[in-house]
Write a protein that binds this DNA or RNA. Structure first.
Lengths: 221, 221
DNA sequence: CCTCTTTGTATCAAAATTGTTTCAAAAAAA
DNA sequence: TTTTTTTGAAACAATTTTGATACAAAGAGG
């Protein structure tokens, strides 16, 4: 799971970002000033950093100097961006930037692009003869296209991204049905099982997508 | 993909330009002095050059002399806003100029205009037996002309320029109905669907222009 | 073998999304 | 201006997806 550090002092904005990135499957750490970010970077590895320019204690530019040698991609978050001398320092090695206020979908798209540039993610996933083009929502088995519904698609992507790993039921619900995590009894519904069944049938995964009794499922090679 | 050379010695500004042009779908090469630009031009073909006047080693005007015989359009970038410089820049054969600081959208607009003037953007698009002449707004299926309304035309061009790529609903609205992106609920209108329907009917695209449920549409060969 | 728990499957109705028709307002053309 | 064309809103239909329910099958442990 990819780790993203969010350094943003406006808590509501930070919260919003964290919520959405978590939902999108990233592991998020939020900090609210440059100093604690520098500390955190001492001991942790991140795959990407979202960095606000205006920060207490150590500002974004200064922190950037600190990050640069680490070779971690940075996306700046800034309030205004014209090609002005005043914001000359803006990019200072950043991979991209976003101007507040921004749309969440845009943020997600930018993150995707940068992570791909850094080879942290792939847009085409494969498992045996199954190919999943996540950009275009195309699934193929061999040469024939298989049409999956959105939920089926999401679930398949989760399995391929975690192949050979046992995914527990809770975890699967968390990743694919995040809206349900609040409802009390997940065990009382057969939703997950049903979708597993559908994937198995459509993609002929009877022998690959295994049931781990009392735990969850595993897509095994 | 169109190739643009950026010759600008202030790295932050260069970075910012590169980021935005890349985002807009251009292939960018950035260099920081006139000499290496001259070298690069020996071996590579570019569709457009963004050229700063004040450059180390060989300045923008001198480099311009070098570029002129190559028939590559040049947009000058200059910090000096005096009229003299503007005139000098243009008379030395540049297609346009921008005075720093400038807005990114303005840069993009100028680039667009210049590229079109030089016919660098493909003017005749095709998909199967459909031909679209973007200069003259003529659409043909086989030999018979099909009359499309402006919006229909725009939408078709977007699809053909992005054939085999899934275009998400938001993206399509962004590209064809940019004026609507601010209104709250795009999901509450059937405008896109309606135009899709019209295109399908007029051009008999039932099997080619596919619906990707919960995503968008794709024109597939 | 029996019982309890967990997982698999079929059915079906609700929900979400997309397609279609109609029509009036807006824009363009005459 | 009047006429024609284009556009998109509204209402409704059709389709697709989703998950609830009920029950069957399979596994675990005695």
């Amino acid at each position: 799971m990819l780790k993203i550090l969010i350094v943003e002092d406006e808590k509501p904005i930070s919260d919003l970002i964290v919520m959405n990135l978590t939902r999108a499957g990233y592991n998020c750490t939020a900090l609210y000033d440059g100093e604690s970010a520098a500390d955190m970077l001492e001991t942790n590895n991140f795959d990407l950093i979202l960095l606000d320019i205006m920060l207490p204690k150590i500002n974004g530019y200064e922190l950037m100097e600190y990050i640069r040698p680490m070779n971690i991609p940075v996306i700046f978050i800034t309030a205004k961006a014209s090609l002005d001398d005043r914001i000359k320092g803006l990019t200072s090695g950043a991979e991209d930037y976003l101007v507040k206020p921004f749309e969440i979908v845009e943020l997600l798209a930018r993150i995707n692009i940068v992570l791909r540039r850094y080879n942290k993610t792939e847009s085409v996933l494969t498992f045996k003869d199954i190919t999943v083009d996540t950009d275009n929502h195309i699934v193929k088995k061999g040469d024939t296209a298989i049409s999956l519904t959105p939920k089926e698609f999401e679930l398949l992507v989760v399995f391929i991204r975690n192949k050979n790993i046992t995914l527990f039921r809770d975890r699967l619900y968390e990743l694919v049905w995040p809206e349900l995590i609040f409802s009390d009894e997940l065990s009382e519904t057969r939703t997950l099982d049903l979708h597993i069944q559908r994937l198995r049938k459509k993609l002929d995964l009877k022998n690959d997508l295994k049931t781990i009794y009392n735990a969850g499922y595993r897509l095994a090679e």
